[in-house]
C-alpha cells in the first residue's frame, strides 16, 4: 500500500519507470479478473490494456481516497460491464453444460464426471475448469464480479465493497447468491457424499 502511494506520486511527476512498476505489479491480477469476467483471453487482454491506459491518462486526478488496487479493479469492472453491454454476445459467454464440445470438425459429448471423485482429485483438469467457467458466465455480472473478487482474487469483503461501491451486507448477499447459483450449475461435481 505504502509502495503504491509512492509509485503514484512518482507517476504524477511523470516518472515513466513508476508507471512500468505499477503495470508489472498489477497486470496479472487485473488480467486474471478480466479473464474470469469475460471468459476469453482476447477480451481480457484488450481490457487489461485499457485499464492501464485509463490509469495513465487519469493518474493526475487520482487521490488517495481509495487504494490503487481498488481503483484499478473498479476501472476493470466498469470496462467489463461496458463490454458486455456493447457486444451483448451472450452466446460466447454462456455455454450449456449439456452442449457438445467442438473437437476439430466433429462434436463430442462432454465427459460425465466420475461421481466417486472428490473435487480435490479433479484439480488441474481442464474439463472441470471449462465447466466452472461456463457456470460463472451464466451469472449476472454483479454476482460474478463479487464471487470472483473473493474466491478467485482473494479480496476481503471490505475491499470488494470499495471496488463495487456497495455496502458490506450487499457484498455478502452477492457472494451467497453467486455460490448458490454456481452450486446449482455444478451440482454433478458436488454430490459426492
Amino acid at each position: 500500500m505504502h509502495q503504491d502511494a509512492e509509485l503514484i506520486a512518482r507517476c504524477q511527476r511523470a516518472d515513466a519507470s513508476a508507471f512500468d512498476a505499477i503495470v508489472a505489479r498489477y497486470k496479472t491480477k487485473i488480467y486474471h479478473y478480466l479473464y474470469r469476467m469475460t471468459g476469453n483471453a482476447e477480451d481480457a487482454d484488450d481490457l487489461t490494456q485499457e485499464v492501464f491506459i485509463r490509469m495513465y491518462t487519469n493518474i493526475g486526478k487520482f487521490r488517495a481516497e481509495a487504494s490503487l488496487s481498488t481503483w484499478l479493479f473498479r476501472i476493470a469492472g466498469n470496462l467489463a460491464v461496458d463490454r458486455f453491454r456493447r457486444t451483448k454476445n451472450s452466446r460466447r459467454l454462456v455455454t450449456s453444460l449439456d452442449a457438445p464440445i467442438q473437437v476439430g470438425e466433429e462434436e463430442a459429448s462432454r465427459d460425465v464426471p466420475d461421481m466417486s471423485m472428490a473435487p480435490e482429485v479433479l484439480v488441474g483438469r481442464r474439463e472441470l475448469a471449462d465447466h466452472i467457467e461456463s457456470a460463472l458466465a451464466k451469472l449476472p455480472a454483479k454476482l460474478r464480479s463479487a464471487v470472483i473478487l473473493f474466491d478467485v482474487e482473494g479480496m476481503s469483503y471490505d475491499e470488494i465493497a470499495g471496488v463495487e461501491g456497495i455496502p458490506l451486507g450487499t457484498v455478502k448477499s452477492r457472494i451467497f447468491n453467486a455460490r448458490v447459483a454456481l452450486r446449482d450449475s455444478l451440482r454433478p461435481y458436488l454430490e459426492t457424499e
Binding site: A44, D45, P119
Partner: peptide, 15 residues
C-alpha cells in the same frame, strides 16, 4: 464445496 471448486481454476497470465 462450490468454493473449493472455484479455487481450482487455473491461474492465467497475460501475453
Amino acid at each position: 464445496m462450490t468454493q473449493t471448486l472455484l479455487r481450482t481454476l487455473p491461474s492465467v497470465e497475460p501475453r
